[in-house]
Amino acid sequence: MSRYPKNWKAIAHQIKEQADWKCFKCGMQCLKPEDDLSQWSKLERRRKTLQVHHWNYDPSDNHPQNLVALCTSCHLMFHCRGQSSISPGQLKLELTSD
């Protein structure tokens, strides 16, 4: 059973909108749902995908102050602190937007 709520995609989309589709940590402008993805390679699309991170690492705690928009690289960095077994493929990447 998922620890994410049924309306997770809507919550994540709202956090990304509030961040103007920019990474909180590095400031990279990430892809928006309406962007033409055909001009980007798969690697670039993955790199420019904005994800939503839970500061306390608890996906069931979706209070706005616990959520932040991060690019794939920055999100992975937060999850790899002290852990060496997490790979980029283990973080859910939704290239079509939440």
Rank of each mutant, 00 (worst) to 15 (best):
S2D: 12
Y4D: 03
Y4A: 06
Y4K: 08
P5G: 04
P5F: 09
K6Y: 05
N7L: 08
N7Y: 06
N7V: 10
K9S: 11
K9M: 08
A10N: 07
A10W: 04
A10K: 09
H13F: 09
Q14N: 06
K16Y: 04
K16W: 00
K16V: 05
W21G: 02
K22A: 11
K22M: 12
F24L: 11
K25V: 13
K25D: 14
M28K: 14
M28H: 07
Q29K: 14
Q29Y: 07
Q29V: 04
C30D: 02
L31H: 00
K32I: 08
E34Y: 11
D35G: 10
W40D: 01
W40P: 00
R47K: 14
R47Y: 06
T49G: 03
L50T: 02
Q51S: 07
H53E: 07
H54D: 05
N56F: 03
D61K: 05
H63C: 14
H63Y: 15
Q65E: 13
Q65I: 08
N66H: 00
L67E: 01
V68Y: 03
V68M: 06
A69K: 02
A69T: 06
A69Q: 03
C71Y: 04
T72M: 10
C74P: 02
C74M: 06
C74K: 04
C74Y: 02
H75W: 04
H75E: 02
L76T: 01
M77F: 09
H79V: 12
H79M: 07
C80M: 10
R81G: 07
G82E: 09
S84R: 13
S85F: 14
S85L: 12
L91C: 03
K92G: 04
L93G: 03
L95W: 10
T96W: 07
S97W: 06
